[in-house]
């Protein structure tokens, strides 16, 4: 690795460290800062590629923040770049959380702190409910999706089925529907051609 590459790697680290440090509230909140750093400031990624990559990386499981860091890190400097980026984006969180975690057990014994958390817990429920509403309002709903939503909600609450199972089932449904459509349409177009 020459000194120019080392410098680029260092810049990549600094860039993702900053993104990890200054975004509150999870992956989607990172996107504007990421765009500013990667597209406008460093010109590592083209604007069009940036938008496509956000959609693409959501097809893979994992936190959006890591997926984007790994993807763009790879784009800029291969696997080494992706490793540096993902470490850099996680590092601020890890350090801050460790700092808090070290004193949490002592603090959480204090009565006032317990009362503070009594107030915070319902607000956390509200934020989680809003996350569901937020995703729901951005979707184009059809009957199949509504049926799946109701069925999955009931099954997971009533029978406390492992979420992994639900994810795998819906994954299978999506794959089967895709293959069915592909096969069905192909068959249909074959028939059209034989009629002609």
């Amino acid at each position: 690795m020459n000194s120019k590459e080392k410098l680029k790697l260092l810049k990549l680290f600094g860039c993702f460290f900053k993104i990890g440090l200054f975004t509150f509230g999870g992956g989607f909140a990172m996107i504007p800062l990421m765009e500013k750093e990667l597209v406008n400031k460093h010109h590592w990624v083209k604007k069009r590629d940036f938008i496509n990559s956000i959609a693409l990386t959501q097809s893979v499981p994992g936190a959006i923040a890591f997926n984007l860091a790994v993807y763009f890190g790879h784009d800029v400097m291969g696997i080494v770049g992706s490793l540096v980026s993902v470490i850099a984006v996680a590092l601020p969180s890890v350090l801050i959380i460790l700092g808090i975690a070290m004193f949490f057990s002592t603090f959480s014994e204090i009565e006032i702190v317990q009362n503070i958390f009594k107030g915070i817990r319902p607000a956390v429920v509200a934020l989680i409910i809003y996350a569901a509403i937020n995703i729901a309002t951005h979707l184009k709903w059809d009957v199949a999706m509504i049926v799946i939503l109701i069925a999955a909600t009931l099954v997971s609450i009533l029978f406390s089925i492992n979420p992994i199972l639900l994810i795998m089932v819906s994954f299978a449904i999506g794959t089967i529907v895709f293959l069915y459509n592909k096969y069905y349409k192909k068959k249909k177009s074959d028939c059209n051609s034989c009629k002609n």
Partner: peptide
């Protein structure tokens, strides 16, 4: 197309998990 099809049926499950 396949990714879209999978995500189409995955998103309601994601919402269900968040509700849960």
């Amino acid at each position: 197309l396949m990714t879209n099809s999978i995500l189409h049926y995955l998103r309601p499950v994601i919402i269900a998990l968040i509700i849960n």
